[in-house]
Amino acid sequence: MALTREEVENVAKLARLKFSEEEIEKFRTDLNRILDYINKLNELDTENIEPTSHVVEMKNVFREDRVEESLPIEDILMNAPEKKDRFFVVPRVIQES
């Protein structure tokens, strides 16, 4: 089942990526070739196999809920593309009525 153009466009939207017409076609070709290769996994019967999401067997790691020192606000804002006083400036989300 090859990816259609619409599917590639939808995945791009989910991933917050924009592509030109040619790029979409290129990605469609690339992804289909890669997925075609990956479909080789279907040769294996995995009916009774547990998935491994992580190789280290550990349960939740808890710690005391204690306030520790944080990084200074000015250090954190140092890399902000846009800032004002102690805040990140973001494009307006709520429109004026």
């Binding site: 992804l31 996994l41 279907n42 995995t46 547990e50």
Partner: peptide, 23 residues
């Protein structure tokens, strides 16, 4: 990012991601 987003997207998660974790 495209490949990963696709593999995790609704309807394909079991076919790709869960399958890969089992392998």
């Amino acid at each position: 990012i495209m490949l990963g987003t696709y593999a995790l997207s609704s309807g394909y998660y079991d076919a790709y991601y869960l399958k890969a974790l089992k392998v």
